[in-house]
Design a binder for these strands. Structure first.
Lengths: 208, 208
DNA sequence: TTAATTATACCCGGTATTGGGTATGGTTTG
DNA sequence: CAAACCATACCCAATACCGGGTATAATTAA
């Protein structure tokens, strides 16, 4: 199930998208907001897989919102939704971590395609968008290292089946610190517990 | 570290083996008993990797003790230690789950070799023992399936990162039942927590 | 057809993990 | 240099897990 949050100050458009997605069995809208601040609140609460956000919004604009979302939840995919094809806006929100850019005057079914594409880990830019000025890595893999040095070390130890207190001993640090790192990783990676974190560690075979 | 428990009603022999193993850095004696009942108690308490047991013992003989140990802790390796090379005794204790058979009139260093061999997952029979009547599988892989059907199913789900309550929902059964299965598996496999169980599940890639 | 095993479900007390915080120094970097 | 980021360490309340039990019905094996 692809969970989606929408931020858009024109309620009519929100309603339209809601209508469009209503009968898509693999997509579920978990919240919508009319400004950036409300979007952030929804994202923190629901942690959707995909965020579809307008760029021009009250309180917090879409670019800043994207930056904030990607900082707290690097795994959440953001799609920008804008009236105009402005090179500067495309550049800025992509650098902020967005995975796609849609135009409001394009057919609505593009929304559907874009959501599925970014949820699958790809990027999706409206055909009308000139992306030539974006480097290939920026579009497809804008990911810097998500985890910090300590976090990676701790994840490695978790992958060895160590418990939190064993890790704390090995690293000569407090249990609370290891717990904090573990919790930050769970948040950053969008996981839901030590089990999934261990799974992630073993699957990635320490390539993170 | 290979942890070892010894059961032998002649204390002098226990002392001798203690002395022998004292300077082996990779082997540690975690307990010794003079009868089968005391052995069981030690095994339950310390859960050693290897048990070295006499066959003729007060209260519970070595064969019955082996059966009981292997039932509760299939991962614990048992080496029989006997005065005589009796085919029937060799057959019975091997069928009970023992991984090796030593003779008391053999050089003491055989004990060392046997412990390391069985700890590594091999079998070890004294050279004087005629093992021709034992089938190859009986000697090297006397293991029937350690885990039951439900246990294997639950282990698979654990391997997918599911929590206990998620598994209970999926199987339409009580959380307490899933917990019981999980705990039984941890005991049977000699693990120490859900972390290691998950590790085991992923490592064995569901070949259990 | 008994005996053993399995699956089910619950008890207890104790420890670990979770998911939110806050806070304080260092480091890095624009 | 100020803003970000990182590592550190702690708080809290709620939930999950651990490692022992017991018990009962159903199924399987000897």
């Amino acid at each position: 199930m692809i969970t989606v949050a929408i931020a858009e100050d024109h309620q009519s458009l929100v309603d339209g998208i809601n209508l469009l997605l209503e009968y898509e069995e693999d997509i579920s809208i978990v919240g919508s907001a009319n400004d950036g601040e409300a979007l952030l609140a929804i994202v923190r609460l629901k942690q959707p897989k995909v965020v579809l956000t307008d760029i021009k919004m009250p309180k917090i604009d879409g670019i800043s919102a994207t930056r904030l979302i990607k900082k707290e939840f690097p795994h959440i995919k953001v799609i920008a939704f804008s009236m105009f094809d402005q090179e500067e806006a495309v550049r800025q929100i992509t650098e902020a971590g967005a995975s796609g850019y849609l135009l409001k005057n394009s057919p609505l079914d593009q929304v559907l395609i874009a959501i599925r594409e970014v949820a699958a880990g790809h990027s999706f830019y409206d055909k009308a968008i000139d992306t030539s000025f974006l480097s290939e890595e920026t579009k497809t893999a804008p990911r810097k290292l998500i985890l910090s040095k300590s976090e990676r070390e701790i994840l490695k130890l978790i992958g060895q089946g160590k418990t939190t207190s064993e890790i704390a001993n090995l690293r000569f640090t407090a249990v609370s610190t290891v717990e904090k790192h573990r919790k930050n990783m769970i948040r950053k990676l969008g996981l839901s517990g030590k089990g999934e974190l261990l799974r992630y560690a073993l699957e990635k075979k320490y390539n993170f």
